[in-house]
Design a protein around this nucleic acid. Structure first.
Lengths: 100, 100
DNA sequence: ACAATAAATCGAGATTTGTAGATATGATTA
DNA sequence: TAATCATATCTACAAATCTCGATTTATTGT
């Protein structure tokens, strides 16, 4: 777990928002069309719509969140779904007590 | 408490180090010369020495950590002492459970 | 095989952050 | 009241991050 890299990811409002929205996908995103539920998270296009930023920017953000292990990515056909990695998020929060 | 501003402050290794060192001043810094103990923290010059960065950079870092309330500043004569604001640090860690 | 679609990657300009040296401020001492 | 010292602020440039449009890649449907 790279503490500083996670901090960098979390120093941007949009990325924090995305992480927060993914806590309750059914509340924050429209119903999925190509999969029956939110078990693997939310597809990139829905996240992009919600932020209003460009496709490349959002893809970039999601990739960096994935690289530091805050998100889990699953590919279904053409679509990539992202969900929170709750274990890593908890690890991070726990680690703060020692790191700070 | 401004969550995002604190995250930005914590997205730099030197600033995280400073916060960490201030947990145990007597272990990480030389004895104070102008005050008897570490009750008000550590003076800027000792922090600067330890990082090896310039005086202006360290002063800038400490000021920004102070502005988001992570540090408490106390002036004694010519010297400014900085110590951790444990309450705010705990608030921040607690808030993560909701914010993330 | 070809066209279409979703997402990832590339390249570049705009903005922010990092960092230092110079200068200003405030306190102390001669 | 000068001179000196510690810290803060100002100015500027270098490096990193933000963000987009264009291109590439992977997958699907015709």
């Amino acid at each position: 777990m790279n503490f500083l890299e996670i901090n960098k990811v979390l120093s941007n409002q949009v990325r924090v928002d995305i992480l927060h929205w993914l806590k309750k996908p059914e509340k924050n995103f429209p119903p999925q069309v190509n999969v029956p539920d939110f078990n693997d998270g939310v597809c990139v296009c829905h996240i992009q719509d919600k932020t209003g930023l460009s496709q490349s920017t959002i893809s970039h953000y999601l990739t960096m969140m994935h690289k530091v292990n805050l998100l889990i990515a699953t590919r279904h056909g053409k679509w990539t779904y992202y969900k929170r990695n709750e274990n890593e998020i908890l690890n991070y929060i726990d680690s703060l007590k020692n790191e700070l």
